[in-house]
């Protein structure tokens, strides 16, 4: 459960990443670490990683955040989203032992100057999305979490929960409609 540090926003995390990038700021790193490392570890353990491997991978993910801080673009993703993508890729590598094909970037992609207005819009969207997820009916949120964290296909969720596949699909669809609404 989210207990400590619930006041930090994406803006704070973005500032921390910038301080790591520009000043190798250990204090900023410690703040990020305290918040995200236990969440990354929980994510990996829910996906089926044992505690020791999850600890190691979570350290890896946080170390990557430090070393690749210059690649983070706050106009494209929130800090949590960026960390999620690093953790997800680490999971695929460690747990599934597979490659992950990544899309090519758009021609006008990463070279463009970080846009202040885009970054601001993204802050807002991130806050709205977080609120929308928290406001989802329990039975919808649980399924979305299982799809992301449980490493389960829809039919495996059906086996685990005993719900009919059609019910699962329609609940996920309803949840996605609400979340998409929050993002635009």
């Amino acid at each position: 459960m989210k207990t400590e540090d619930k006041d930090e926003t994406n803006e704070d995390w973005v500032a921390c990443i910038a301080r790591i990038r520009d000043h190798q700021d250990r204090a900023a790193f410690a703040v990020l670490f305290q918040h995200f490392a236990p969440r990354v570890k929980a994510f990996l353990m829910r996906s089926g990683t044992d505690a020791a491997l999850a600890e190691e991978c979570a350290q890896d993910v946080m170390a990557t955040l430090w070393q690749k801080a210059h690649l983070f673009d706050p106009a494209r993703a929130s800090a949590a989203t960026w960390i999620f993508t690093i953790a997800r890729n680490r999971k695929i590598d460690a747990l599934r032992k597979q490659q992950r094909p990544e899309p090519e970037d758009l021609p006008w992609g990463p070279e463009a100057e970080p846009d202040q207005a885009d970054a601001l819009a993204l802050q807002q969207e991130t806050a709205q999305l977080g609120a929308a997820i928290a406001a989802l009916p329990d039975k919808q949120r649980v399924l979305i979490e299982k799809a992301y964290f449980g490493d389960l296909s829809h039919s495996e969720i059906a086996d685990e929960t005993g719900l009919p596949l059609g019910t699962i699909k329609s609940r996920i669809r309803l949840a996605l409609d609400r979340l998409r609404h929050a993002m635009k």
Partner: peptide, 17 residues
């Protein structure tokens, strides 16, 4: 991806070593 980010941000934690 943003949904994944929000989920991990709001999720439960497991204490680090």
């Amino acid at each position: 991806d943003a949904i994944g980010g929000s989920l991990i941000d709001g999720a439960e934690t497991v204490a680090m070593a």
